[in-house]
């Protein structure tokens, strides 16, 4: 467990929770990223602005943090096909299951939603099993 980083993880979590709280306080909305993405294309025009700005902020967040607290550069070396399949699965699954990690595992759990608890346990289990097969069975 020498890769365990409790402080940055807790601070990061705190910031995510704070961000969701601010969105609730000002806009009265739940910060589920997949839902915000979908609705930024389909909601009526007046309701698209906050979603667009939220997503833009999210996109630049890592760059801003990196300027103040430089972290080791991430190297990506995954086959393109794998990334594409993963993206399609995540997009389709998030819509079918009505939420992703932020919507279910953060906002939903914070509201003690049974649906979100089931979804969270399900996707973490499925992801652990997938990672296990990829790494220890297929040796990828």
């Amino acid at each position: 467990m020498e890769n365990f980083t409790p402080y940055s993880a807790l601070i990061g979590g705190l910031l995510i929770g704070l961000s969701a709280a601010l969105l609730l306080f000002f806009n009265g909305r739940v910060a589920g990223i997949s839902g915000i993405i979908v609705d930024s294309f389909s909601a009526e025009i007046n309701n698209r602005y906050w979603r667009g700005f939220f997503l833009i902020g999210l996109m630049f967040s890592a760059a801003i943090i990196n300027t103040f607290f430089p972290v080791a550069e991430v190297t990506y070396s995954r086959p393109m096909l794998l990334v594409i399949v993963a993206g399609i699965f995540v997009g389709y699954g998030a819509r079918l299951g009505n939420g992703c990690t932020s919507g279910h595992a953060v906002c939903g759990l914070a509201r003690f939603s049974l649906r979100s608890a089931v979804a969270t346990l399900t996707f973490i289990s499925a992801a652990m099993l997938t990672t296990y097969i990829m790494r220890h069975v297929l040796g990828y």
């Binding site: 399949v85 997009g91 009505n98 990690t101 996707f123 499925a126």
Partner: peptide, 29 residues
């Protein structure tokens, strides 16, 4: 829908380690 959706989501998440939020945040890399 909830369970199957979460399963499909989990498989995709486990394949490369990106979820929608983390992928968007990583775009600026």
């Amino acid at each position: 829908r909830l369970v199957l959706g979460a399963m499909i989501f989990g498989v995709g998440w486990g394949l490369v380690g990106f979820c929608p939020g983390s992928a968007l945040a990583a775009l600026s890399d």
